[in-house]
Amino acid sequence: MCYYFYAIASKKDGRIYKGVSQDVDQRLKWHNEGKTKSTKGYRPWQLVYVEKVDDLKEALEKEKYYKSGIGREQLKELIKQWPRSSAE
């Protein structure tokens, strides 16, 4: 079963939320419907980066890394290069 590390950006204030899911589209829908307590107040959200990984352990390691100082900087660069970011 595959997992995805994803990053979404608040259209309200630009903050980036990082998470892990098996179904990124459904997860984004939940964020935008206010079903996720930590992101409810910053709606609407848009998907700005997705990375497919092989298993949950790897996905959680990526999430932890991208939440670290150096990882946050790297993620900012990945978001700039990610195809859907430039289209939205």
Rank of each mutant, 00 (worst) to 15 (best):
E73M: 11
Y66G: 07
Y42H: 14
L47S: 06
G34P: 03
Y17W: 12
K80N: 14
K37L: 06
Y17P: 08
V50E: 09
G71H: 03
D55Q: 06
K12R: 15
R84E: 09
D55T: 07
L75E: 08
S85E: 14
W45K: 08
E77P: 01
I16K: 08
K11R: 13
G34Y: 02
W45A: 00
S86H: 09
D54C: 11
W30L: 11
Q26I: 06
Q81E: 08
E63N: 08
Q22D: 13
Q26F: 07
K64H: 13
T39M: 00
K52C: 00
K37Q: 13
T39R: 05
K80I: 05
K40P: 02
K80H: 06
T39W: 02
E58N: 08
K12W: 03
Q22R: 15
G69F: 00
K62T: 02
K80Y: 04
S85I: 00
D25F: 04
K40S: 12
W45F: 03
Q81F: 03
D13R: 09
E33M: 12
G34W: 01
A9K: 15
L47N: 07
G41Q: 04
I8H: 01
L75W: 09
V48E: 02
T39H: 02
L56S: 05
Y65E: 03
K57C: 00
Y49E: 04
L56C: 00
S68E: 08
R43A: 08
K64N: 10
Q22I: 11
G34T: 06
Y42T: 11
E73C: 04
L56G: 00
Q26S: 15
Y66P: 12
R43D: 01
K29Y: 10
H31I: 06
P44L: 03
L78I: 04
N32R: 12
Y42V: 02
D25H: 11
G71C: 06
E51Y: 09
D54F: 09
E61A: 08
R27G: 03
V20G: 07
K64C: 03
G19Q: 10
S21T: 14
D25N: 15
K76Q: 11
L60H: 09
Y66F: 14
I16D: 05
L28E: 08
A59I: 07
R84W: 00
Y17H: 15
W45M: 02
K57L: 03
G14K: 10
Y66A: 03
Y65Q: 04
Q22S: 15
E58R: 14
P44D: 07
I70Q: 06
K57T: 14
E63H: 07
A7W: 08
F5M: 09
K11L: 10
E51N: 10
G34V: 05
A59N: 05
E63K: 15
V50D: 01
E77F: 01
V48G: 02
V48M: 01
T36P: 00
K67H: 15
D25L: 06
A59Y: 04
E61T: 11
R72G: 12
D13M: 00
Y6I: 05
G41I: 02
L78D: 11
K57V: 07
G69W: 05
D54R: 15
R15E: 10
Q46V: 14
A59P: 05
E51R: 13
W30E: 15
Y42A: 06
D23E: 14
A9S: 13
V50F: 00
Q22M: 11
S38I: 09
L60A: 00
E51H: 13
E77N: 11
K11Q: 10
